[in-house]
């Protein structure tokens, strides 16, 4: 296979000089075309979000009447109404969500990477069985396990706290991420950790010194996804958080909805925009780590 032939080229370090001037013009032209396509796609992708932003400045009936994104009658009142419309200022719900998300991220990063390293690199008995069990836990729809789980946590006195939303993450219950990291670790050349082992590193040192730094893209992905999913997760937060002072953002947002009366669409959209900002910021920040993986340790 080609892979094995390229691997023999590990030592190659110089870039071959290519005649540049002639290809440059072609490259810029191609780059321009690419940008055009990417921008066009970006508009399609963004339009709905711009509409959401526009709607946050509109009155309820306009939200349902207009599908354009140009706002003629700016109504900034939605933001004030949304921020102060519930029992507590919306900032409290943002803080609550941030605490849950931070806990969940820490939990997933630690526990899932540990389990993933074991599954991907170490030999032990029942490995295949345990791995299969782990996959099976992803496959059962959460709606049928949430009632027994609720009963379990209520027995432990954890209702109305963030514990049922955070502690399980420290126990690697998000098997999705374990599997994700397993796949990434299996993509790391084994020579690297074999070398570390030969240098006398134990399994834990190999894990923390070699594997973890090399799987930064996977860790970043895990952090981003955990943040986004926790930030948007509605059902379990609805069930476990009871009193308004511990409500999270999705639960608070749904408080504006009234199936039997007036839904406060304006404030709902305004606060949806506000709630989206931290996620976007988190992504912008987190995706920088996507660029740093093994490629930086390779030869430039």
């Amino acid at each position: 296979m080609t892979i094995s032939s390229t691997r023999t080229a590990h030592t190659v370090s110089q870039r071959r000089e290519t005649p540049r001037s002639s290809t440059r013009r072609l490259k810029t032209a191609r780059g321009f075309g690419r940008h055009c396509a990417l921008i066009a796609l970006a508009i399609v992708m963004l339009y709905p979000l711009l509409w959401m932003l526009a709607s946050s400045f509109r009155s309820s009936d306009d939200i349902f009447r207009l599908s354009g994104i140009l706002v003629t009658h700016f109504k900034t009142g939605n933001y004030g109404k949304g921020w102060n419309g519930l029992k507590f200022p919306f900032g409290l719900y943002l803080i609550n969500s941030a605490i849950i998300a931070a806990g969940a991220i820490a939990g997933n990063l630690i526990s899932c990477s540990m389990a993933a390293y074991a599954f991907a690199r170490l030999r032990f008995r029942f490995k295949r069985t345990l791995f299969a069990i782990m996959l099976i836990t992803i496959m059962l729809p959460m709606h049928v396990v949430i009632v027994p789980q609720y009963i379990l946590f209520s027995r432990m006195g954890w209702l109305n706290t963030f514990l049922p939303l955070i502690v399980p993450k420290f126990l690697a219950t998000d098997a999705f991420f374990v599997f994700l990291m397993v796949q990434f670790i299996r993509g790391i050349p084994r020579e690297l950790d074999d070398a570390a082992r030969l240098d006398g590193c134990g399994y834990f040192r190999t894990f923390t010194r070699v594997i973890l730094p090399l799987m930064k893209p996977a860790l970043a992905t895990t952090a981003i996804f955990t943040f986004v999913w926790t930030w948007n997760d509605f059902f379990s937060q609805l069930i476990y958080l009871t009193a308004p002072n511990v409500y999270s953002v999705p639960v608070a947002l749904r408080s504006f909805v009234d199936a039997n009366g007036d839904t406060s669409w304006g404030p709902l959209f305004a606060m949806s925009v506000v709630a989206l900002l931290p996620v976007f910021a988190a992504f912008l920040f987190g995706q920088r780590f996507l660029t740093r993986g093994i490629s930086t340790t390779g030869i430039k």
Partner: peptide, 10 residues
């Protein structure tokens, strides 16, 4: 209910 109900009952 919606926010009007919540506010009144609180």
């Amino acid at each position: 209910g919606g926010d009007a109900v919540h506010t009144a009952l609180e």
